[in-house]
Design a protein around this nucleic acid. Structure first.
Length: 416
RNA sequence: GGAGGGGUGGCCGAGCGGUUAAUGGCAGCAGACUGUAAAUCUGCCGACGAAAGUCUACGUAGGUUCAAAUCCUGCCCCCUCCA
């Protein structure tokens, strides 16, 4: 914990990414001397990554920025097994077609954060299905199985917790850690990859790779994990009412993404600025120190910066401007999410509750009625007092009708 | 294969013949207070219906009963112990 020599470790320690490291001094020494390769694996369980993975992506970004080579490992093979870490029960099996589709969706996001290519510090992407699918069971058991003892495997949290809770752990899942361990060795051989990073729930899996590398190849490998992120109120990062905060624009619009960060709790602002933006630390310290409502300025900067990385400067600026018009001027900003309704239907009049459902602001007619009855439904910024009030073309203002549910969810209705 | 226990709303978890769309908690939504924050307080929280009301729901399929989440039978699934 004394003075770290390598840029990478110093940076990530200062910014709060560091949780555990297998050999901090050894790694520091190596990184300060040579350009090295490190990898992080990503499951292909959904068609987009969400902010829960953002810390890992940022780690790879810093890794590249400090002069090293990032390897993005797509878990095309391991996702066929299913990682039991941190899960109470086995996830249902994904079909190979699903995994392939998910992988395609996930791949696109890395181009925003990393520079890919063939140069010494350019990022590369690999898929562990390339080697795992070819493994021969008997060969694998003979070559690698004898390096693992059941005694040791039973001590890992991913296994131990399941057993303690008397929840089933299938043999399939039990094998996951061997395969992830083998991944590390394979990447060491192919790319002289010496470091695996991941979330703290991956510690056990990472250790397995480090140990397997030493036993099988006498390789000195390193592991490093980042802390599990929760908000100050204890909620898991990246979950909202609508679901996960996805990184792909087609899963979650940049506007909603920006809003997620804008609504960060006060107590989290500094931490998030360090983790999810690249603002200098003295600037972060200044923003973090803002008192009372002034901290809203820091939240806007946080939202701008994070959105800029994920969706580009234009999308970030647009989201910021839309927010300014909507929340600070109370105007119907033109860039709010829009729903189109046939003009003829609108001319005939649509009950207000039905319009809320059409706009996606309510899950059912009953839900919409409850919303309006509770005083949470607004039409053109005026609170609705009747859920059945017909909405017609007469309500159009500058060609649109602004519907609001609660304080934050706005939709523009257009007649077409 | 044998013996026992269990499957209830997004999750946890009561209920164990009618008064139960089903206690309670968590999560969620809205309102108040604020700063698009947190905390707190209040209301809401199956679907359809303007409403009266109708329908669907307690693993699944049947049965008993005026009436079943609650009783009986078959089936499916899970857990524990034994072999």
């Amino acid at each position: 914990m004394t003075s770290l020599k390598s840029d990478f470790l110093r940076t990530i320690t200062e910014r709060g990414y560091m949780h555990q490291c297998t050999d901090l001094d050894g790694l520091d020494k190596r990184l300060s001397q040579t350009c090295s390769a490190a990898y992080i694996g990503f499951d292909c369980t959904a068609p987009s990554l969400h902010v829960g993975s953002l810390m890992q992506i940022m780690l790879l970004r810093w890794w590249q920025k400090t002069g090293h080579k990032p390897i993005v490992l797509m878990g095309g093979g391991t996702t066929r097994i299913g990682d039991p870490s941190g899960k109470d029960e086995a996830r249902k099996m994904l079909t190979d077609a699903d995994i392939g589709r998910n992988m395609d969706g996930i791949k696109s996001v890395f181009g925003k954060y990393l520079t890919f290519g063939t140069g010494p510090t350019d990022a590369v992407m690999v898929n562990n299905a390339d080697w795992l699918d070819k493994l021969n069971y008997i060969d694998f058991l003979r070559d690698y199985g004898h390096h693992f003892t059941i005694n040791r495997m039973l001590t890992f949290d991913s296994v131990k917790l399941r057993l303690e809770r008397e929840q089933p752990l299938t043999f399939l899942e039990f094998n996951y850690m061997l395969l992830q361990g083998y991944d590390f060795v394979e990447l060491y051989r192919r790319n002289t990859c010496v470091l695996q990073m991941g979330g703290s729930d991956q510690w056990g899996n990472i250790i397995n790779g480090v140990e397997l590398g030493r036993r099988a190849d006498q390789a000195e490998l390193f592991g490093l994990t980042s802390p599990l992120l929760t908000t100050s109120s204890g909620a898991k990062m990246g979950k909202t009412a609508q679901g996960a905060v996805w990184l792909n624009a087609d899963s979650l619009s940049p506007w909603e993404f920006w809003q997620y960060w804008r609504n960060t709790e006060d107590a989290d602002v500094g931490r998030f600025l360090k983790l999810f933006t690249e603002l200098p630390l003295d600037e972060v310290a200044r923003l973090e120190g803002l008192q009372g409502s002034e901290i809203n300025e820091a939240k806007k900067i946080l939202a701008n910066e994070v959105t800029r990385l994920a969706h580009g400067a234009a999308a970030a600026a647009e989201a910021a401007e839309t927010a300014r018009q909507t929340f600070e001027e109370g105007a119907a900003a033109g860039n709010l999410p829009t729903v189109e309704i046939p003009a003829a239907e609108l001319a005939a009049g649509i009950p207000a509750f039905a319009l809320f459902v059409r706009a996606g602001l309510a899950a059912s007619n009953g839900d919409a009625k409850r919303l309006v009855k509770g005083g949470g439904g607004k039409l053109n910024d005026a609170t609705l007092d009747s859920e059945t009030r017909p909405v017609t073309t007469a309500d159009l203002k500058d060609g649109v009708i602004k519907l609001t549910a609660g304080k934050k969810r706005h939709i523009l209705v257009k007649a077409v």
